[in-house]
Nucleic acid binder design. Structure first.
Lengths: 120, 120
DNA sequence: CCATCATGTAAGCACTATCTTACATAGATG
DNA sequence: CATCTATGTAAGATAGTGCTTACATGATGG
């Protein structure tokens, strides 16, 4: 999961993923889409993506064709759902109850300082 | 988006997000969950998460209570959907359109491999 | 064969991230 | 007030990323 997220946390690599999202693209064609950086740099990005399982490679004669492997994002999707859907539901429920659950470690707290500024 | 993904691409910070997913937790209580690292380190992680908009803070007397902000993940959710759902569908369609050679012994075939078939 | 094309790899350098320890500050408490 | 508690910030050491240029390798085509 770390490897996957670190791979995706780079704008160039996300752009590459979008390039290979619709079908196979040769390494050179990918590199040509990034005139601002050298071809080896793109090649290294492709290696990172491949090591993370986000793309798959297939040799075709001289060239190497890359394509997206959506399965590589499964873990990330799971984590996101865990945070997004579930987390949002839980926080929303807590908020609408107008009491923030802060009971993990009960504090002495003589006065209700907690409900003083919770209204945005 | 970069900031968000970089923030999430760290196991400690993801663990913190899980801690504050269900309600508010004080900084010290969070730090106490990571005996392997110093408290300032956790504090810095919290800053990264706050700067990325993934958590929100609220002062409560002496302490600072952190809670998840699921909205911070909206962009990531969008990107993931773009790659996951859409990407999977497109690759599948491309495969059924015969562009994706799972069985074709593509030999030299100067062009029809992958060049302009990407249908923008 | 030999030259060329497409691609990956190695070495090196600048910049960034993530820790640590030491210090600063704001609120609570006697 | 004096002091303790909870927390953030500063400075620095170390490791990691992301580029570049130079080189290596395997397939193509005369």
């Amino acid at each position: 999961m770390d490897q996957t997220l670190r791979a995706v946390a780079d704008p160039t690599r996300r752009a590459i993923l979008r390039l290979v999202r619709d079908g196979e693209v040769a390494a050179g064609d990918i590199a040509r889409e990034f005139p601002a950086m050298s071809r080896p740099a793109v090649s290294q990005h492709l290696k990172v993506l491949a090591d993370a399982g986000l793309v798959e490679v297939r040799p075709d004669g001289n060239r190497r064709l890359y394509r997206l492997n959506p399965e590589g994002l499964r873990e990330v999707a799971g984590f996101l759902d865990e945070m997004w859907t579930d987390g949002l539901a839980r926080l929303k429920a807590a908020a609408e109850r107008e009491e923030w659950p802060e009971r993990a470690r009960a504090r002495k707290q003589s006065h209700p300082t907690a409900d003083k500024e919770t209204t945005p």
